[in-house]
Design a protein around this nucleic acid. Structure first.
Lengths: 213, 213
DNA sequence: GTCTATATAATGATAGAC
DNA sequence: GTCTATCATTATATAGAC
């Protein structure tokens, strides 16, 4: 992907740049931060930064790759292994992932604008998104086969997955607007209200509100 | 809000700036467009632009105000009149609003980053959002009182409204990623899959999937 | 690997003539 | 109202010394 360092000291310089950029991007927004700011925060010269990265976009892409890697590690995914979890386990995992969203808050805020400006990042992002949607769709169909969720047709499953994905991807950044730091519970509550009615009375751990009285 | 023009010719210059900015922002993203680009596209000098707007942020705020005004006009809201529509009417109205999202596509993409950079815009945005959420919550409670939706407690209604709002606010920008221009029907399908199970069998126009067999 | 120095370009914004 | 002219500032990126 990028230049491979030959020594541990060098590797540390590259990581310092990434950490400095992450902190500044989160604080001021990626658009307001320049390579000079990043170099200063990293404690290196502006010129040295260009030894490690060709430009700001490459730093952003690298940070996105880090996020994807940490996310895959959390879910034990990315290696083709199908995810097999209960609905409540999925929600719990998503709640854990909220901390990740916080560490990469600038991506939650700026991702759409960044994608529009950098075709390379867009290619990475859409590929990851397609993979995740496919994984989650497979999981939803497994749930359907086991009677965990109701007998929805494939089109409805696709819409449901899409809706849940959209909420999972955006709740954090919009929650930040409410002053109080977005809480992981806020996100899971929103996902739960969407998913809950589709769970069968005995399949889901949380009781379905759809049961007739 | 801004300078008030004294002649129609002048007003037309100001509007040309706004239209030029809107076109460029939509095409390249607001971050990549400078006041010089906007002035050139508007057919005026860079200096003249500063006679009408103090900076780029003010142009963005004005465009956002335009969007809010057009949106309020579409819904007949903003003047305190409570919205009273059926679920299918709401979805139809949202589908009409998709054209608006397209005309102001840059806001759909960049809004979170812009809010982070401009406290004035953030104040406007959060005020509008709070008002819209309140209006929609009132409507949902009206539906509940009429038996259009099930007898949910207030907390669940709040979560449901929040989830629907999040999807309505974000589906367009993410749909753009799929190459095929985002279709209004895509958005309503997502909203429908969330709302449908909460509709009572006879209250909602679309049959609920939650009915027990 | 890292620095200093610098080239090149663009930016936001203002002053003053018309 | 609109223009031209211009400013100080800042950004990206490179060259070459160490």
């Amino acid at each position: 992907m990028s230049r491979i360092p030959t020594t541990d000291g060098a590797r540390r310089t590259r990581d310092r740049v990434l950490n400095a950029a992450l902190g500044l991007f989160n604080q001021h927004g990626s658009a307001a931060v320049t390579t000079n700011h990043v170099a200063a925060r990293a404690g290196i010269s502006p010129g040295n930064l260009y030894y490690w990265f060709s430009d700001k976009d490459e730093i952003v892409r690298e940070l996105y790759a880090q996020l994807v890697a940490e996310y895959d590690e959390l879910w034990g995914t990315g290696d083709g292994t199908p995810v097999d979890l209960t609905p409540d386990e999925v929600l719990a995992r998503l709640a854990e992932g909220a901390a990740l969203s916080g560490r990469y808050a600038f991506l939650a805020r700026d991702i759409l604008g960044l994608l529009h400006a950098d075709p390379l990042l867009e290619a990475e992002y859409t590929a990851v998104r397609a993979r995740r949607i496919a994984e989650f769709t497979d999981l939803a169909r497994t749930w359907r086969a086991r009677g965990v969720i109701r007998a929805l047709d494939d089109a409805t499953v696709a819409d449901l997955v899409q809706a849940l994905w959209l909420i999972a991807e955006t709740w954090f950044a919009f929650g930040e607007l409410d002053g109080n730091r977005a809480d992981a519970e806020d996100g899971t509550r929103l996902l739960r209200v969407v998913l809950r009615p589709y769970l069968t009375p005995d399949g889901g751990i949380t009781r379905s509100t759809c049961e007739q009285p």
